[in-house]
């Protein structure tokens, strides 16, 4: 699931503060409880449990990120990146 974030281009990664938590240490368990996690792995976006044990397609991931974007600039960058990612599937 982590790998899906590696498919994002650098200009999108610039405004994503991404952190991976391990369930194998108390800090990670604390975060899992704080976020009210139910299953592993779970991908959270803006603290919401967005993908619980489901690897999103690129369409789904961009849609979620668009919904979480906080500025028009971010939304514009995401739309362009999404369109570019989909060129391969045209």
């Amino acid at each position: 699931m982590v790998d899906v974030l590696n498919t994002l281009p650098d200009d999108v990664k610039e405004f994503i503060d991404y952190k991976e938590w391990s369930i194998k240490n108390p800090e990670g368990i604390g975060m899992f409880i704080e976020r009210k996690g139910r299953v592993l792995p779970t991908l959270c976006v803006n603290q919401e449990l967005s993908y619980e044990s489901i690897i999103p397609t690129l369409d789904e991931l961009y849609e979620t990120l668009l919904g979480a974007a906080t500025s028009d600039e971010q939304r514009d960058t995401l739309k362009k990146a999404h369109a570019k990612a989909m060129e391969e599937y045209a």
Binding site: D3, V4, N6, I55, L58
Partner: peptide, 11 residues
């Protein structure tokens, strides 16, 4: 890579 999961839907 993770593209395989998009491929399964789009290609």
């Amino acid at each position: 890579g993770a593209k395989i999961f998009t491929d399964m839907v789009k290609k």
